[in-house]
């Protein structure tokens, strides 16, 4: 099989928008991703799957363009020859065996039946499925199904790998295997773009991430900057225990605690600007007072909270200088966000 890889792998979106009827899944996206592993993060409905499906040639843009190394992917075999796609849906050809499925996919990528079978064997082995080669995929477990989908995505050695929620349903062992394979491919010069809504999954694989919310890029940068932002913005800590008012009384003078709210007779919520100090203080008081604790959670320690925070921030920062439409299209680049934050701290 002959393939030209004259151009390095690149995913470029220019003013990319996509609507489903009246619903905008992506709005005015501008980005360029080059070789390496990229985490695509965002809450449900943020446009991650739409972006991946556009890149995999399954959908066409409503406005703007998407290019894979300079070529539009929709119904374009030349562009798709470089793509490996692992869809999110737990759907497979149930009647095929694992080996049949992956080798047929390799054949459809242009390899001879013999070569395809060799590649399929290698690919399935890589993902730890050597013992299930001749079993029908209909009888595979969820984790095995996920791995066979990944095996078909990499069987033709693509240099652009698009993976939609690749860790869904996988156990820790499978996850380690998948992470290792993706890391290797990234090191070999492939562009790996994987979507997930869990930050810690991406964190162990790459430090380059792209945050989507409401169809827009709200941040693009390094994971540690995201972590820092999570720690910076006001943090809520909710404790359900037997004496919430007593706990609140004891912690009211804790540095960084800016407000305390009660809900019901058993829950108290602390809002803190310094979560790294607030957590130890709360835990120490709970131990000292021998409280009966039902739960200690943080509604903020999620990406959803961060997206909300970043979107609000983008809207605030754009309100003064831009038109209402333009400010919704302004991504917050993390370095810029950090500078703004430090600046505001100095002022205060």
């Amino acid at each position: 099989m002959k393939r030209t890889k004259a151009h390095p792998p690149e995913l470029r979106c220019e003013r990319l928008s996509r609507w489903y009827g009246k619903v905008a899944a992506l709005q005015n996206l501008n980005l360029t991703l080059r070789a390496g592993v990229w985490g695509l993060l965002g809450p449900n409905g943020s446009g991650k799957t739409t972006l991946l499906r556009l890149a995999a040639g399954q959908l066409r843009p409503s406005l703007g363009s998407i290019r894979l190394s300079g070529q539009a992917p929709f119904a374009n075999p030349a562009a798709l020859a470089r793509v490996g796609f692992c869809p999110e849906a737990d759907a497979l050809y149930e009647e095929f065996t694992g080996l049949e499925f992956v080798s047929k996919m390799a054949e459809l990528s242009g390899f001879s039946p013999r070569e395809a079978k060799e590649r399929a064997l290698q690919s399935l082995e890589t993902f730890g499925l050597q013992r299930a080669l001749h079993r029908r995929v209909g009888g595979y477990s969820r984790g095995m199904r996920q791995r066979v989908k990944l095996a078909q995505a990499v069987v033709h050695d693509p240099d652009i790998l698009l993976l939609d929620e690749p860790f869904t349903g996988t156990d820790p062992t499978s996850r380690a295997v998948i992470l290792e394979q993706l890391r290797l491919r990234g090191q070999r010069g492939a562009l790996v773009l994987l979507s997930t809504h869990l930050l810690h999954e991406v964190e162990s694989l790459t430090d380059r991430i792209l945050l989507l919310a409401r169809g827009q890029v709200v941040a693009q940068g390094r994971v540690h900057e995201i972590r820092a932002l999570l720690e910076e913005h006001p943090h809520h800590i909710r404790v359900v225990c037997d004496r919430p008012r007593e706990l609140a009384r004891a912690l009211i003078d804790t540095p960084g605690v800016v407000s305390i709210h009660f809900s019901g007779d058993s829950a108290v919520e602390f809002e803190s600007e310094r979560p790294d100090e607030a957590y130890p203080a709360i835990c120490a008081e709970l131990l000292r007072g021998e409280y009966r604790v039902e739960s200690l959670t943080s509604p903020d320690a999620t990406l959803e909270a961060l997206f909300h925070y970043l979107t609000e921030r983008a809207n605030r920062s754009g309100a003064e200088s831009r038109s209402p439409r333009a400010r919704f299209n302004t991504p917050v680049f993390l370095e810029q966000a950090r500078v703004e934050h430090e600046h505001s701290e100095v002022q205060s």
Binding site: A56, G57, Q58, L80, A81, A91, L108
Partner: peptide, 8 residues
């Protein structure tokens, strides 16, 4: 999705 993302 498996078929239309192949170079066919």
């Amino acid at each position: 999705a498996f078929l239309v993302s192949r170079p066919l």
